[in-house]
C-alpha cells in the first residue's frame, strides 16, 4: 500500500490514480532501488539498453545517450583507485578514515572507502574489489585491496 507523508494523506486517492496513469515509471526510483539492492547485499548498477554504457549513480536517463531504457546489472566488483584522501578525525570520534574515488572495470567512477589497509596506504592505481558492507549501520559499497587477500569477495 502506498505510504504517504502525513501532509499529503488527504491527496491519497488522487496520487494513487495518478500512479496508475504513470505505470511506465518503476517504483521506487533508481536511487532507492540501488539502496534496497545494497540492503540485500547486492551491488548492482545500471546499463543502458541503447548505447550499452554503464550508468552510475542510478538515474532515470542515460547521461551518455539520453535513453530512458536502463536495466540493472551485476558488476565484476573489480576497480582501480583513481584518487584517495585521508579524513583526519580524533580517535574518540572513530579515528582517521579513507575516502577514495574508484574506477569500476565497467567504466563508472564512484566514491567509496578502501577499508582493509591503513587510510594513508591507499594508493592511486591500487587494484581493489567491491564488497557490500556497512558504515554506521547503513549498507555501503566498500573496497578491499585485492593484494591483501580476497576476504569475503
Amino acid at each position: 500500500m502506498l505510504e504517504l507523508p502525513a501532509h499529503t494523506e488527504h491527496l491519497k486517492d488522487d496520487i494513487l490514480a495518478e500512479q496508475q496513469n504513470n505505470n511506465n515509471l518503476e517504483n521506487p526510483g533508481p536511487l532507492q532501488t540501488f539502496e534496497e539492492n545494497l540492503a540485500k547485499g547486492e551491488f548492482r548498477i545500471q546499463q543502458c539498453k541503447d548505447c550499452g554504457q554503464h550508468v552510475f549513480y542510478p538515474r532515470l536517463l542515460c547521461h551518455h545517450c539520453g535513453s530512458n531504457a536502463l536495466k540493472w546489472v551485476a558488476v565484476s566488483g573489480k576497480g582501480v583507485v583513481y584518487s584517495s584522501a585521508v579524513v583526519r578525525q580524533r580517535p574518540e570520534k572513530g579515528g582517521d578514515y579513507n575516502i577514495s574515488l574508484i574506477d569500476l572495470e565497467e567504466g563508472p567512477r564512484l566514491m567509496s572507502r578502501v577499508v582493509d589497509v591503513d587510510p594513508e596506504e591507499v594508493a592511486i592505481g591500487m587494484q581493489v574489489s567491491a564488497h557490500v558492507g556497512m558504515i554506521n549501520d547503513k549498507p555501503a559499497v566498500l573496497f578491499y585491496n585485492k593484494e591483501q587477500g580476497d576476504k569475503e569477495w
Binding site: A85, V87, I99, M111
Partner: peptide
C-alpha cells in the same frame, strides 16, 4: 540533497579538493 556519496561521510567541501590535489601530485 541525498546522494550516493552521503554514506561515506566525505568531509565536504575539503575532501573533493584533497582528492584533486592527490591526483595532481600523482
Amino acid at each position: 540533497m541525498h546522494t550516493v556519496e552521503d554514506v561515506y561521510r566525505p568531509r565536504n567541501p575539503i575532501t573533493p579538493y584533497a582528492l584533486a590535489a592527490n591526483r595532481h601530485m600523482h
